[in-house]
Design a protein around this nucleic acid. Structure first.
Lengths: 249, 249
DNA sequence: CATATATAACTTATATGATAAGTTTGGATA
DNA sequence: TATCCAAACTTATCATATAAGTTATATATG
């Protein structure tokens, strides 16, 4: 067994960053989500630093979304999800006043790409997943018609709506797209409610939204990529329009 | 002055995460990059936790790319760059064998969108920025023709190539696109070299690559959005093809 | 007076040691 | 065998101390 070479950070670097880098490599090597890192004590011994240093390094990795931390258990390599990414996109949006529109613009490209791919390669279960979300929308949608303006119901509807789009992304089979669209959900939540308010103001029923989604799903089922693209584009453009309308009032 | 309410994490949560959330809010409120956070001691006092806890929270934020840390100075709110994002995308790519292709696919959508927007809204200085990169490519390109197979020169060429695409993204005026394309540069570096090897194998000169970029720039200058889109798409599709070819050999 | 320099005050980086509170594991027990 | 409990692990947090950067201040120098 090789003697543990203590980490002596080069000038300008810190032990924490060095350890974080080493651990990143280690994670990339293991690569499989669900696998545990060594215990803090072990890592401290291996790298010749204190437990404090190791802990801070791990916290950095957690911030990047590479590991998940929970008390009493060792840190676990996490599956790449959009969660950590969402923060970052939120930060851009917050940073720039027109950031929200920038995000909507990007989302449109990604969703169009996603739906095009989904139409080509969606598997049966993936389609079932999309269908589920649409069913949910339809069901909750009825309640919205009856009881007016219940925020909690609206929120439920929103969850299914977001779920629909995530399911489409998933059906594309492209992990990067899936992660990005997931990541956008949180910062775009506000835009969604703006868009719905805009629709409500113009007296457009929820059914209309449901129908738009249904059309997208139909195209995917029929492997009609072109149709899916235009259906998605139409849907998103309308949302953007509603959003702008809501902003002006 | 309100007495500092000590952070008492709810069950299942930790003080570190709570502090990190509080600080995130604080950052969002200040929002301006370059502004310093309070000193660790101050924050510890304010939130009623130890310095260690504050430090770990800050490390999480640093991992997310929200702040920059340097010794002797307080943590500083950082400008949103694609750097932290790059790690994450790299992680996805590493995680999934076909991740590289997924990434190329996404890049194509984003770049096409970017160039379309750039053709519509590029300012004079933005165009000059793109031009600079193209000049660099052309200059370094000549060297590649003369001296064969110098890795360092290839790397230089690559930097200008990446720079060109980043400059186009910047010219789009869309911060989200810019950040994403920047973030992709690192994980896509390997794909770039594969693509060049593929070209070299087929005896395609560097000039051809330069010409493709020139065409894109011309379209942007002429505000020809449609032309820019097809020029960019053609260029990227060729790269992808070369990459596949290189993989097979 | 202006400038350079040395010193003090701040601030972060890291280590040690201790305690509390979760999680896992293995054995005793029914 | 199935269940429960205690011991062993492991992370969370704290207090304290020292080293080593950075910044501001005051002093000396031209």
């Amino acid at each position: 067994m090789a003697k543990p070479a203590s980490i002596v950070p080069a000038k300008g670097r810190t032990a924490v960053v060095d350890v974080a880098d080493q651990l990143t490599e280690l994670i990339y090597a293991k690569m499989t989500p669900g696998v545990s890192l060594p215990s803090e004590a072990e890592m401290a011994a291996r790298y010749g630093v204190s437990r404090v240093t190791v802990r801070e390094a791990i916290k950095m990795l957690a911030g990047r979304g590479l590991v998940e931390i929970s008390r009493g258990r060792r840190a676990v390599i996490s599956e790449p999800t959009g969660e950590a990414l969402g923060d970052f996109l939120g930060w851009i949006v917050q940073f720039d006043p027109k950031g929200m529109f920038d995000l909507v613009e990007v989302r449109m490209s990604l969703e169009v790409k996603a739906v095009a791919l989904a139409a080509q390669r969606a598997t049966r279960p993936a389609i079932a997943g999309i269908e589920n979300m649409l069913d949910g929308m339809r069901e909750v949608g009825k309640k919205i018609e009856r009881i007016d303006a219940d925020i909690e119901i609206e929120r439920q509807f929103h969850r299914y709506d977001v779920g629909f789009h995530e399911a489409v992304a998933l059906a594309s089979g492209n992990r990067v797209i899936t992660s990005l669209i997931e990541a956008m959900a949180v910062p775009l939540e506000r835009s969604f409610f703006m868009s719905r308010r805009g629709k409500a103001a113009r007296g457009i029923p929820v059914e209309h939204t449901v129908a738009a989604h249904q059309k997208i799903l139909d195209c995917i089922k029929n492997k009609d990529s072109t149709g899916a693209i235009s259906a998605m584009r139409a849907h998103l453009e309308e949302s953007a329009r509603d959003m702008r309308a809501a902003l002006e009032s």
